[in-house]
Measured scan of single mutants.
Amino acid sequence: AEKTGIVNVSSSLNVREGASTSSKVIGSLSGNTKVTIVGEEGAFYKIEYKGSHSYVAKEYIKDIKDE
């Protein structure tokens, strides 16, 4: 089941290729951006990003809701 969340950062949140802080950064999301969460892996959520799937750190996503 998909969930949505809100990016909870003051500046921007790195979007990564994989579920690791050493993964390549492929983009960023600004605070209060709504994201669609399709899964989770460790400390990361797998999200829909620009037509494919990428990862963001869970600690920076708030207001998780089931869609």
Rank of each mutant, 00 (worst) to 15 (best):
N14G: 08
I37V: 05
G42M: 04
I26N: 04
E40S: 07
I47G: 00
V38R: 05
V25P: 03
V38Y: 07
N32E: 08
S11C: 15
E2A: 15
T36I: 14
T33Q: 10
S28T: 14
K46F: 05
E17Y: 06
S11P: 09
N32F: 11
V38M: 07
S22E: 12
I47N: 00
L13I: 15
G27V: 02
D66C: 14
R16M: 15
V25Y: 04
T36V: 14
V15H: 02
T36M: 09
G39D: 06
I37L: 04
E40P: 01
V56C: 04
Y55L: 01
R16E: 01
D66P: 12
E40T: 07
K50P: 02
S12T: 13
I64A: 07
K58Q: 05
K46Y: 06
A1K: 14
D63E: 14
G31A: 15
G42S: 04
G5V: 05
G51E: 06
N14I: 14
I6N: 04
R16A: 03
Y60W: 09
E17K: 07
V7Q: 02
K34F: 09
S23C: 08
T4M: 10
K65M: 11
S11M: 10
K24I: 07
S30A: 14
G5H: 04
E67R: 10
I6D: 02
F44A: 02
I47L: 02
S52R: 13
F44I: 00
N8D: 10
L13P: 08
K46L: 11
K34L: 12
N32W: 12
V9S: 12
V25C: 07
E2I: 15
K34Y: 10
S52N: 09
L13D: 02
E17W: 06
V9R: 08
G18V: 06
S52D: 07
E2L: 15
S20I: 04
S30M: 14
T36E: 04
N32S: 09
V9A: 10
V7S: 04
T36N: 09
I61Y: 02
K46R: 10
E2W: 15
A43C: 12
S52V: 10
S30H: 10
G42P: 02
Y60C: 15
K50A: 10
L29H: 01
T21C: 15
S10R: 12
N32Q: 10
F44L: 01
G18W: 11
N32A: 08
V25I: 14
V15W: 01
A57C: 14
A19F: 05
S20E: 06
I37H: 00
S22F: 09
K46E: 06
V25A: 05
A19R: 03
K46G: 02
S12P: 09
G5D: 02
K65I: 12
S28V: 14
A1E: 09
V56Q: 00
I61M: 04
I61A: 01
L13K: 02
Y45L: 06
S12W: 13
K50T: 04
F44Y: 09
K24R: 13
I47M: 01
I61L: 06
F44G: 00
K58V: 04
S23V: 02
S23D: 05
S11Q: 10
V7A: 05
Y55H: 01
K65P: 09
S54P: 04
R16G: 02
N14M: 14
K50G: 09
G27P: 01
G39R: 03
Y45C: 03
G5N: 03
K46V: 13
L13S: 04
S54A: 15
S20P: 02
V7H: 02
G27L: 02
I26R: 04
K65A: 11
E59F: 08
V38W: 06
D66H: 12
E48Q: 11
I6P: 02
T21S: 12
V35N: 00
S12H: 13
R16S: 06
L29D: 00
T4V: 11
V15G: 01
I26P: 01
V56D: 00
S11G: 15
I26W: 02
E67K: 13
R16H: 15
N14V: 15
S22C: 13
K62F: 10
S22W: 07
T4Q: 09
S54Q: 07
K3L: 10
D63K: 10
I47F: 02
T21R: 10
G27E: 02
S20M: 06
R16K: 06
Y49E: 01
V25T: 06
T36Q: 08
V56E: 00
H53C: 08
A1I: 14
N32M: 10
T33V: 09
K50C: 12
E2T: 15
V7R: 02
V56K: 00
S10W: 08
T36G: 04
A43E: 14
V56T: 01
S22K: 11
S12K: 12
H53N: 06
N14E: 15
A43T: 08
F44V: 01
L29P: 01
S28M: 12
T4E: 07
S30K: 14
G31S: 14
V25H: 03
L29T: 02
E40Y: 05
G18A: 13
K62M: 13
E59K: 13
A19C: 06
N8A: 14
H53T: 09
I61K: 00
G27C: 05
E2Y: 15
H53L: 11
S52Y: 10
I6R: 09
A1Q: 13
N32P: 05
D66Q: 13
A1D: 09
S30G: 09
S10V: 13
S28D: 06
K34H: 08
I37M: 02
A19M: 04
V56S: 00
A19K: 03
S12E: 10
G39I: 02
Y60S: 08
I64P: 06
G18F: 14
G18I: 07
T36K: 13
V56M: 02
I26G: 01
T21I: 13
